[in-house]
Amino acid sequence: MSMRLAGKTALVTGATSNIGRAIAEAFAAEGAHVVVSGRSAERGQEVVDGIRGAGGRADFVRADLDGSAAASQALAQEATRVLGGRIDVLVNNAGIYPGDATAATDEKTFDRVYAVNVKAPFFLTAAVAPAMAESGGGAIINLGSWIARLGIPVGALYSSTKGAMETLTRAWAAEFGPQGIRVNAISPGVVLAPDAGEAHAAEVMMKGTPAGRMGTPDAIASAAVYLAADESSFVHGTVLDVDGGRTTAAVIAA
């Protein structure tokens, strides 16, 4: 590895599985000291043990990001302490995905999804950004989704929360950029961890795309490393599509 994040500290939410785990592992492999955050201490420790076993630096901080400002502030405070007094990179990855149709979505579910997917990262960013600016700047990376811009007939609630995060990305870039904080987002396509080569129902969503297949968490992690590293110092307020071309191009079969 080129150690592109050597000397940096990072907080990754929802880092106990899938995309969040891959990002935490990639950051650590590039030299960052990473706080792995999530609800499960068992899964979190597994990620941390794997990173340490590979020679990286990581610690687990448990957090149930329920949308309350208090929960987000508590995570920011504890992660800052564990990381030695500063957070250089924040990855707002934690989220939940109910795929119900609109008419089948009750108010309790609506409120919970917005709490976890929008309110929690909003208040976590609010808690982290001022100190990040005081320490000289940093990078914030949000996770959007391809279905925020390409409508599909399921998951309207979830897609609207990801649309909100992409909008916040642009607003925060304008708000925090002058303070030395770069804010960008990644919009993954259909991404699932490899499962012994078994077929998955979601594969149909990637038919007709340039890639012609689902992506893996590692592809998203590579994009996150780029947005966290100094090489992207002139990148502000962008949503980087890592979706196999799902939202930008269609392959027409002959």
Rank of each mutant, 00 (worst) to 15 (best):
T9N: 04
A103I: 13
A76C: 03
G212V: 01
I19H: 14
V61I: 15
K108H: 14
G163M: 01
G50N: 06
G55M: 07
A131V: 14
G14C: 05
M132W: 08
I147C: 13
V61S: 08
A193M: 08
L143R: 12
A201K: 09
D243I: 02
V113E: 02
A28R: 09
G38K: 08
Q179V: 01
I220E: 02
L75D: 01
G85H: 01
S187G: 11
T247D: 00
I181K: 04
G177H: 01
P194I: 08
A249F: 08
A201R: 10
N142I: 10
D88W: 07
V34E: 06
E231N: 07
V183Q: 05
M3W: 14
V204R: 15
V35T: 03
N184D: 10
E134H: 10
A32Y: 11
K207W: 08
A219T: 15
A126H: 08
L5I: 05
T102Q: 11
F60E: 11
N18W: 03
P98Q: 05
V204E: 11
A173N: 04
R57G: 03
P98I: 05
V183K: 04
N18H: 14
E25A: 11
A211H: 11
T247H: 07
A126K: 12
R149S: 06
E25F: 03
A185K: 14
G14F: 00
G50T: 10
R21W: 00
S232I: 01
G189F: 10
D49I: 07
F176D: 05
A250Y: 12
G237I: 01
K108Y: 06
L124K: 08
A32M: 09
V61Q: 13
A133E: 13
E30N: 08
D195H: 15
V116E: 00
E46D: 13
V235P: 06
K108F: 07
G55Y: 01
I152E: 10
I152C: 04
R43V: 09
I51K: 04
V235Q: 02
P153W: 00
